Amino acid sequence: MKNKDKLSGVFAPAVTPFDGDVIRYDWLESNIRKMNNAGVKGYLALGSNGEFMSLSEAEQLKVVEVFVNNKENQTIMVGASRESVIETVRFIDEVAKLDVDYVSVLPPHYFAKNVTDDIMIKYFLEVAEQSSLPVLVYNAPGFASNVNIKADVLRRIAEHPNIVGIKDSSPSGIVSFLNATRNINDFSVLAGSADFFYTALMYGATGGIVSLANYLPKLSVQLYQTFLEGDIKSGVDLHFKIFDINQKVSGKFGVAGVKEAMNITGFNGGEPRSPLQRLTREQAEILNKCFQEKVLI
Results as ranks from 00 to 15, higher is better:
101 D>L: 01
181 T>S: 12
102 Y>I: 00
26 D>H: 08
200 A>N: 02
125 L>Y: 02
288 N>C: 10
43 Y>I: 08
65 E>A: 12
292 Q>E: 15
286 I>F: 12
79 G>W: 02
246 N>D: 14
250 S>M: 13
262 M>A: 00
282 E>P: 00
68 V>H: 13
33 R>G: 07
169 S>M: 03
108 P>D: 08
236 V>R: 01
11 F>S: 08
54 S>C: 11
272 P>V: 07
16 T>G: 06
85 V>C: 08
186 D>F: 04
225 Q>A: 11
235 G>Q: 08
118 D>P: 04
22 V>Q: 13
208 G>N: 05
145 S>F: 12
14 A>F: 13
194 A>K: 06
60 Q>G: 13
22 V>I: 14
145 S>V: 11
23 I>R: 00
171 P>I: 03
56 S>C: 02
227 F>K: 03
117 D>F: 11
255 V>Q: 00
218 K>F: 12
244 D>I: 04
267 F>Q: 01
290 C>M: 11
40 V>S: 01
229 E>Y: 09
87 E>G: 04
264 I>Q: 04
96 A>W: 10
130 Q>S: 13
259 K>D: 05
53 M>L: 14
208 G>R: 01
30 S>I: 09
228 L>E: 13
295 V>T: 13
250 S>K: 09
93 D>E: 15
23 I>H: 00
166 I>V: 13
210 V>L: 06
247 Q>T: 12
3 N>P: 00
186 D>R: 02
183 N>E: 14
169 S>Q: 01
144 A>I: 03
47 G>D: 02
11 F>N: 11
41 K>Y: 07
126 E>V: 03
248 K>Y: 08
